[in-house]
């Protein structure tokens, strides 16, 4: 058994309590082995600062993002309305998520369907915690390390969040190096638009290889990202290029958790 302290909304409600924030884990964060580590790292941070949060647990369901991007609007709205019924029943006000796809969908596409919440990405949430003094980052093992940040499309271009992730990296006393294509000119990992779930169309190259090569050009110790799907794509790319020992791929939450020895 782990020592993570995780409460579900059902438990909170039964105890007559309300959380400060709902942590929307997402499908990748719940089921993908690599992404589950991100989930746990984020929860460790939340526990360490004593944030009163809850998860939906078995009541959570896919936001519908892959269906919507693939063109299945009907399935998307079915998923969305189901989720909104649950979120509204629990009277949720604020949501944090470790997945930019969940973030984008709940923040931008749910309001019109009746789900109005304050939604933040975990990079923004962590930055808030640092800004109001609740969380201090020790730097630790990442001091002086060369870290580059791969902008997830649904965090960066889709929602203009470029600075929060970079400020977190700088808090680690690490050397932040930018790839040629970054921020609003960032290059996709290849997973978006439901491409994650199908073979790529015919071409000369995989998109994640193109992006990994660009990242490896600047010889970083770490490729940081803030999206479980970018994580899969970049990790696969680094493996394929046989650079696993030189370059690691970490999520922002993992970097913070590790540097604080959580």
């Amino acid at each position: 058994m782990s020592n993570l302290k995780v409460t579900t909304m059902a438990e909170m409600m039964a105890a007559g309590q309300e959380p400060e924030v709902l942590f929307w884990v997402g499908c990748a964060g719940s089921f993908d082995d690599r992404a589950k580590k991100i989930t746990r790292a984020f929860v460790k941070i939340l526990n360490s600062v004593g944030i009163n949060f809850a998860v939906l647990g078995t009541e959570e369901s896919c936001t519908g993002d892959p269906a919507k991007r693939a063109g299945n609007e009907f399935l998307f709205q079915m998923q969305a309305m189901g989720n909104i019924q649950i979120l509204n029943a629990y009277n949720i006000k604020k949501i944090v998520t470790t997945c930019p796809h969940c973030f984008n969908t709940i923040k931008n596409e749910y309001p019109d369907l009746g789900g109005k919440y304050q939604v933040v990405h975990h990079s923004q949430f962590l930055q808030e915690l640092i800004d109001n003094g609740k969380l201090t980052v020790q730097g630790g093992e990442f001091k002086g390390k060369k870290i580059t940040f791969h902008d997830p499309c649904y965090l960066g271009r889709a929602n203009d969040v470029y600075e929060a992730p970079r400020e977190l990296i700088q808090k680690l006393d690490a050397e932040l190096v930018e790839m040629k294509r970054c921020k609003s000119g960032g290059f996709c990992c290849g997973a978006g638009g439901a491409q994650m779930f199908k073979e790529a169309e015919n071409g000369e190259k995989e998109i994640n290889i193109e992006r990994t090569e660009e990242a490896l050009e600047i010889k970083p110790d770490i490729i940081a990202t803030g999206c479980p799907f970018c994580m899969t794509m970049m990790t696969d790319g680094v493996k394929l290029k046989n650079k696993e020992t030189e370059t690691k791929v970490y999520d922002l939450a993992e970097l913070i958790a590790k540097s604080n020895d959580l």
């Binding site: 499908c27 719940s30 998860v55 078995t58 959570e60 369901s61 896919c62 892959p66």
Partner: peptide
């Protein structure tokens, strides 16, 4: 409720 074939009942397994 997920793009992968995992049971919804297993959604909180990461905790343990």
């Amino acid at each position: 409720g997920a793009p992968w074939q995992f049971a919804q009942a297993d959604r909180l397994k990461w905790k343990d």
